[in-house]
């Protein structure tokens, strides 16, 4: 993808555009600029909305306690035995909340994977990353990043394990799929 990271390229393009808008606004008194391709008149929003949510994890706190101990936790319905990952605090089948917490084996096989080459804005600061889905011994699937840069070194069906890792640069605990080379 060249020397410039996607984030640098994005920020540079945005800065140039904003300078362009500012110069036109100063000259005309209006934030109306011509579209670069067609020349159509575009009003550039003078308001900005930033979205950052707060999401309740109160009922699944043991999952995060597990990450702190390097474990991947799921819930299991005491009544019907269904394992939930992502963990759920209610079983929709039994309509009960009699759930037990259980540690997952963290061993399984890779079902599929992709490389995210064009990244969303909030992931633009990362290098290209591989996302995979692994099926654990318990029969549940886990979506996560795969610790590998080259998709050609991965194979559908290969053995993998799950490891708890600290995601940088944000510095928070999450989990990753790690190929097992045997």
């Amino acid at each position: 993808m060249g020397q410039k990271s996607q984030k640098e390229a994005m920020e540079e393009a945005l800065k140039q555009f904003e300078q362009f808008v500012e110069s036109i606004k100063q000259a005309t008194g209006l934030p109306i600029v011509p579209d670069q391709k067609t020349g159509a008149a575009l009003w550039v929003d003078q308001r900005e909305l930033r979205l950052k949510y707060t999401i309740s994890v109160e009922k699944i706190k043991p999952f995060y306690d597990g990450l702190m101990d390097g474990k991947l936790m799921a819930t299991k319905c005491s009544k019907c035995g269904t394992i939930y990952f992502p963990p759920q605090s209610f079983c929709p089948t039994c309509r009960k909340s009699e759930m037990q917490w259980m540690e997952l084996s963290r061993e399984g096989e890779l079902l599929t994977f992709t490389v995210i080459n064009i990244k969303p804005a909030s992931f633009a600061h990362y290098d290209d990353y591989i996302v995979g889905i692994a099926r654990l011994k318990e029969g549940i699937n886990v979506t996560a990043w795969v610790r590998e840069k080259d998709p050609k070194r991965l194979k559908v069906g290969m053995r993998v394990r799950i490891e708890v890792v600290k995601r940088q640069p944000e510095g928070y605990l999450t989990y990753e799929i790690v190929p097992v080379n045997d």
Binding site: T114, I116, V131, T143
Partner: peptide
């Protein structure tokens, strides 16, 4: 699923379908 898929793993629309493509091609 924003919380379990996007928040940590930054999937994209082509990324989701690529997961199907990899499995199908294999």
């Amino acid at each position: 699923n924003y919380f379990w898929e996007f928040q940590n793993f930054g999937l994209t629309f082509p990324g989701y379908y690529a997961l199907y493509a990899t499995a199908y091609m294999h």
